[in-house]
Design a protein around this nucleic acid. Structure first.
Lengths: 243, 243
DNA sequence: AAGTGGTCTAGACCACGAC
DNA sequence: TCGTGGTCTAGACCACTTA
């Protein structure tokens, strides 16, 4: 396998090894080649290989034992949610074993709420781009996602916006902004009548409420979100790994 | 500041920089010295400095901009929970601005439940060390934590166990096992009467239920936990950062 | 004793942003 | 243009596990 210059060497090697774990070239519980063997195979330095293996170990996908070797974690399915892709709902739904789809309920401008004015440090005259979307697991609605972006960030007309895109992609395309970090509050809540109507049968008495704030590298607040999550159907699953 | 050989150079530099952010030597929003300046100050290579800065950036504590510099993230309080220490409840309670304390409700042996036998791949004759503990924020109980460890892992007498220690420390001291990774399911639930009785006033209708499984580097399941979390009082807050 | 991962160095070159 | 962070290399030495 040769490595080209278009993407970074690290991310290329990462994709290859990730793929080998996914397709059982390296089966669960098995030992994968040593750092020196991998660095020789890919024609890269051992430091580069170590960077990749450290990333995979951080997600819990592999376990490393000094003096012994590196093993594929048999307790973690490749598909299971981990911290990095946790709020990637499409991925989350599919890793729960369903087919995912998105329905855009509404996309449009409105005035900012009190809460938004505080969180985004904007004035009362400022408009917000507000989006409501419903994520389905097979035919069952499981996540109601409300997101809002200050309209001043928009570089394009509102009616050109594709309501099916993830928030990260919307900010990238229509605002030319990149998310650097996000802060999430996780709460439990009683399912309101409105949510029960929208989410339909298969909803328990309670839902998970995820309150999100997205920021740029310049510490600029880019967007706010409130997501209602039907945890009777979907598992919200986190993996933590320590070195 | 000289660096000794007792701990790793990386962790020493990390502690120093972390401390400087905590005590406002590097105030929120300010630019911190460049990689070369830091490597010169500490007498370590630039690679070592980069390892430290990558760790801090992964927790969202600093923001790095190529061609510009490295800045202290003003949106993240040093004390706020991040992924690495998320299930460190003492830390979590104190980062919410309370004084934390722990009450051990019960510590003892019992037979394994069906669920535990499946999750731990053990037989019906196997005993479990079961612990119930209550975490307080000031005088208010906020987390009810139930943990169970297969009794076969124990190296010491049950009555010598200190019920106030965190699960990681209990496994270390009394079982000589180290946690390598953990899998958590987050759910919302109605507060049962039993929980209402234990947690008392200040509890909402719903609670967060955190179901945990801890594993060793050998992929051995070490312990299971079910935690009930009063999210009316305590914020469960996650920070994610992308490179 | 041999092989594994863990730590650290010194230096090269590149991409990007501010001035 | 200059200084910043981003990427990658080659190699040294150590700690640990296994045989």
């Amino acid at each position: 396998m040769r490595v080209t210059q278009s993407k970074s060497v690290v991310s290329q090697v990462e994709e290859i090894l990730h793929g080998r774990i996914r397709d059982d070239t390296y089966p669960p519980g098995s030992r994968i080649p040593s750092e020196s063997e991998l660095s020789e195979e890919f024609g890269v330095s051992r430091a580069t290989v170590r960077t990749v293996l450290a990333k995979l170990a951080a997600t819990g996908l592999i376990l490393r034992r000094q003096g012994d070797g590196t093993y594929v974690n048999s307790k973690i399915r490749e598909t299971s949610a981990n911290f990095g892709n946790l709020w990637d709902f499409v991925n989350l739904i599919e890793s729960n074993g369903y087919k995912s789809s998105i329905k855009a309920l509404s996309v449009g401008l409105r005035t900012a709420t009190e809460q938004e004015m505080t969180a985004l440090s904007i004035g009362p005259e400022e408009k917000m781009l507000s989006m409501a979307r419903l994520f389905y697991a097979d035919a069952q609605p499981v996540i109601l996602a409300n997101n809002a972006i200050p309209a001043s960030y928009l570089c394009e007309e509102v009616d050109r916006i594709d309501g099916h895109l993830p928030i990260r992609e919307i900010l990238r395309r229509y605002c030319r902004q990149e998310i650097a970090f996000a802060i999430t509050d996780i709460r439990s809540a009683l399912a309101s009548d409105e949510i029960k109507t929208i989410m339909g049968a298969g909803l328990g008495e309670t839902v998970l409420e995820l309150q999100l704030a997205f920021y740029s590298k310049d510490n600029l607040p880019l967007a706010l979100g409130v997501n209602y999550f039907n945890d009777a159907i979907l598992r919200l699953c986190l993996v933590q790994a320590w070195s």
